[in-house]
């Protein structure tokens, strides 16, 4: 039996292509948007279905690896028809959380109306649509006084104190591992018996 193959390649700025070797191909890309006067407008657009992405609170994201691990989990649930939430987008937010409480997870990791920085995650079964979506995201963000960062440098927007509290990461732990690794470890402990 061959193991579960996964791969990623970087394609241009901020574009992360993810492919799962299962029935269908899945691609994923993420953007860090900062300086928003309010994320309310952006959230409305996403909730109305005009922009097919999920919006994360940037304060709770320490690296793109953290997001990729969550997307990976969500896509696996989708393919096995085991989504716990109503859509892949909310499943990504839920996968990030160490808690099994859905509404709490969405509250902690989803973008809020008063967020200044958000992470937009697009998933698709082909990477063709990404360019168009990137453009519409950029113009929306610009209209709200913000910008889409080119380098996905999460250290600028990270709320370390809250992140450590939510994932219950101790300083003792951080002496022997990195924040990113402590976070994925905490994410993986969910659902273990």
């Amino acid at each position: 039996m061959s193991p579960f193959y996964l791969s990623h390649t970087y394609k241009g700025l901020g574009l992360l292509k993810m492919k799962l070797e299962t029935k269908s191909d899945h691609f994923c890309t993420l953007f860090l948007c900062t300086g928003l006067t309010s994320a309310a407008e952006l959230r409305r657009t996403v909730l109305s279905g005009k922009l097919p992405c999920c919006l994360l609170d940037a304060g709770m994201i320490c690296s793109s690896f953290q997001v990729m691990v969550a997307v990976n989990k969500a896509v696996i649930s989708l393919e096995r028809k085991k989504l716990v939430t109503k859509s892949l987008q909310t499943e990504i937010i839920y996968s990030l959380s160490p808690s099994t409480n859905i509404s709490e997870s969405l509250r902690l990791f989803g973008a809020k109306d008063d967020s200044n920085s958000v992470v937009a995650v697009f998933t698709s079964d082909s990477s063709d649509s990404f360019l168009e979506q990137e453009e519409s995201l950029k113009s929306l963000v610009k209209g709200l006084g913000g910008e889409v960062l080119q380098d996905n440098d999460f250290s600028k927007t990270l709320d370390l104190k809250s992140l450590k509290k939510v994932y219950q990461i101790t300083d003792k732990e951080l002496q022997v591992t990195t924040l990113e690794k402590a976070v994925t470890t905490a994410m993986s402990m969910k659902h273990l018996v």
Binding site: V69, T170, K172, E173, Q175, V176, T177, T178, K181, A182, T184, T185, S188, M189
Partner: peptide, 11 residues
């Protein structure tokens, strides 16, 4: 890891 001993992180 929580005890402060190096071990592989779980991804």
């Amino acid at each position: 890891l929580k005890l402060g001993v190096r071990a592989p992180a779980v991804y």
